[in-house]
Design a protein around this nucleic acid. Structure first.
Lengths: 215, 215
DNA sequence: TGTACATCAGTGAACGCGCGTTCACTGATGTAC
DNA sequence: TGTACATCAGTGAACGCGCGTTCACTGATGTAC
């Protein structure tokens, strides 16, 4: 945008990788705006940071390689953020809740990136198996709840899959129709944790209507 | 595709609307392939049915109007199919199950259309409130289960929202990563119906592991 | 200390392509008289 | 019954645009001798 204010000079010798990072950062910024990997043009990325379009080819073989690199970085950052959120407590249930809510909040803040990461057609054209790490860590978090006796014992992979599906579903709906008046995510996540994972309700015996008849 | 075999002649007087239907049908075919509304070009639609690109403008103001018309038709067809599936039984639980499974099966058969309908950026650019009818009918189906005493009484809208989120979530994951070895949808939908809506398990006392500790 | 040279970090012009959209038009068909 | 004419259902050429990618290049910087 404000290219004139920072007239990018050439990097010094040995610092060529800086441009690579700038390109990835700009791609992520644009992808978040566009919410569509196909809509991202290499020329727009170059324009965004004030370089010649051809300079992108110094660091990336083609447009898809750039988008893929950006998404891998995006996923790594997200993983890190979720792990950090989990550190707030030693209680496995609090950990699972924190991890799930952070994912929801992240998606709310970066709807475009969430869409590109999970719903872009890049998923069909390219191997994006690096994303599996997020699923695996959720399964671990669920298993911890079971092992601690805070959730009914069962197949953690299945329970985790159901939870991920439910959370992805509501996040996807919220991200795709941002103008719809959605009810609070937090309460819904709590329902999912209670009903799908089986963690105890926060205030037992409070008789919340959505939990009536379940205990 | 096989344009040469059916060299489209001009429609007779008064039959101009036929072309409109052909255009919509071709657009739906291509959208299902592309799985992305932005990737659909008006020229590709014209090519698909062997007309001049400009002929599309006889029936649609612009590209977006065509896509929107196609999606409205798609949604109407889907609504109709789901309602039909529901008619198999008078039991509200069987009805709800049938409606949910048909949606999943439809998405499996038309992954591209499912994506464009629910996950395309058209949702941000245009009013697509016609889609709400699907949600409303699910809520009605949930309420019927409650009224019949086959599910715990509660706020049908909330329960329906949770169910839709969960089902959309798993369908979305399946549609976006078609090569992933997903577990059977049917069993997962049954878990959602039991855990989220509270309908009775098909074989009570069977002690399925994913339901252990719940009743 | 000076200098030739390799390397690094990037540039600018150009290519061919498909796209959405506009415009003036064509030619068959039905209808008023 | 004949014929002029309005209307319908489309067409073909052309526009300007942004795109991905290739190519030959430039000029600063560090380094070997």
């Amino acid at each position: 945008m404000d290219v004139t204010s920072s007239p990018r000079g050439r990097n010094r010798r040995g610092q060529g990788e800086r441009l690579r990072e700038d390109i990835v950062a700009a791609a992520l910024r644009l992808l978040d705006e566009l919410a569509d990997d196909q809509a991202l043009s290499l020329r727009a990325v170059a324009r965004e940071i004030g370089i010649a379009a051809t300079s992108v080819y110094i660091h990336f073989a083609d447009r898809d390689a750039l988008v893929l690199a950006a998404l891998e970085r995006c996923h790594r950052d997200l993983l890190h953020a979720v792990d950090e959120a989990e550190a707030v407590s030693a209680d496995p249930v609090v950990k699972l809740r924190a991890r799930t809510l952070l994912l929801g909040r992240w998606a709310h803040q970066h709807p475009g990136l969430y869409k590109v990461l999970h719903e872009s057609t890049l998923n069909r054209r390219n191997d994006m198996s690096f994303k599996e790490e997020l699923s695996e860590r959720t399964t671990i978090a669920v298993r911890r709840c079971m092992d601690a006796g805070l959730a009914p014992a069962g197949d953690a992979a299945v329970v985790s899959f159901d939870l991920r599906a439910a959370v992805h579903g509501t996040v996807s709906m919220r991200v795709n129709q941002p103008d719809h008046p959605w009810p609070p995510l937090e309460e819904q996540v709590d329902r999912f944790l209670i009903k799908l994972v089986g963690v105890p309700p926060e205030s037992p015996g409070s008789g919340d209507q959505w939990n009536r008849g379940w205990r």
